[in-house]
Amino acid sequence: MINLISTATLLAVTALVSAAPKGKWFDSIGIIMSENEDFWLTAQQPAYQALIAQGVLATNYFGLSHVSEQNYAAIITGVLDPNIYRGDATTPANLNITYPTILDQLKANGLTYKQYTESYPGGCYLPDMYPDDPVNALYYKRHSPFNMISNLRGTPECSSAIGTYDDFANDVAKGTLPNYFWIIPNDLHNTHTADKDPNPFVDADPWTAAEGPKWVAAAQKANALFINTWDESRCDNTTKYPCGTHLDQQIATILWGPMVPKNTTNNKYWNHFSIARTVEDNWGLKPLATADANATAFDFLLANPSAGNPSAGNPLPSGSGGGSTSGNGTSGDQAHSAATLVKASMSLGLMGMVAGLLGVLPNVVSF
């Protein structure tokens, strides 16, 4: 009898352990970061128009800094750090994030993460570029946020958390796409070639046209929200890149997934801190800093937004039946609470139960 009870309990606990924590709006989120391009030009490109047809184009979204790496770091730390810098003739390089990141929050709550990095050699590569030659380099650490995290770089976890882009297709096929992930295109496919060619999309557009359908299919399979955004605008009101009639730091941001209405636009104001806030709101994580705490999440954009606006700290009372309205006037339904129940079950002493079972059944359980 004791063995039967123990085995039944073990099976129940194993089912809970294997169940990935569900989110309020999505179960995975993928961030695809491109480089240095203005909203108006990006929105005209065929490959990106195809992605817009699958989701929402945010028409009032802004970058934070004209130093690329600071935008990447801001999304994962909630901090716009002026000390993060790739270096130049007068200022030493500093690509070391030494303070808490969203990865710390995710890990503490049983959530998984990974970076899929194109043209990255793998193996927790440490130099600032690959190949280690500024003329031919395709991968840059300054465009690779996970590689800037000091307590991750060089550790045993590094090789599994920072993968190559080939790992993305493998994880999708196996159904092991993590809860939080980045896709980092190489320096040809991220529109960073704008300085080298009159058409900044000469490489990015055909690559995105080929990969975009895979991203859309992955979003459906994993109940994932995908976000393709740019780090900053090309125009910066300097002599070389005047903004003219366009807004400095206005960048295209395209969102798609089964929870996002298709072929729409949204004019709500967002910036890079909104991505961090959306992740935090989706899984009930504590904000990392003041900027992401004060940011507005993408809750009104989603087809099934929460009742009320958690970003404003003013949710509607439970059972009020209220919904949210996206920027295109589409009414959303009240969010389901099953994900909250799953997460609560895992947090209320689940690890204690596992530890107890290990003592009762030392020859049955192995991790």
Rank of each mutant, 00 (worst) to 15 (best):
Y61A: 02
I29E: 06
T59K: 07
S68Y: 02
V135K: 14
N151V: 10
Q44C: 00
Q54K: 13
E69W: 05
Y72A: 06
G78P: 02
T112R: 05
P46E: 06
N60P: 01
Y130L: 02
K24T: 14
L138V: 00
E118R: 06
A74C: 00
D81N: 02
T112C: 07
Q54Y: 08
S68W: 02
N36G: 00
N147A: 07
A43E: 10
L11I: 14
E69R: 07
R86F: 11
P134L: 04
A58S: 12
V17C: 14
T91M: 05
A108F: 09
G63E: 03
Y140M: 11
R142C: 13
D132A: 15
I84Y: 04
T42P: 02
S150P: 12
K24A: 09
T101N: 06
Q115Y: 07
I102H: 05
D88M: 01
N109I: 03
L138I: 00
P92M: 13
L64C: 11
P46Q: 04
S144D: 15
G154H: 07
Y125Q: 12
Y113T: 02
A108V: 13
A58Y: 11
T77W: 07
I97D: 01
A53C: 01
Y99K: 04
T42A: 11
I149K: 10
L11C: 14
F146Y: 10
N136D: 12
P21M: 02
E118H: 03
S150M: 14
G30K: 10
S150K: 15
I149H: 13
D128M: 12
S68I: 03
I102D: 01
Y61I: 06
L51P: 03
L103D: 04
A47S: 08
H143V: 12
F146C: 03
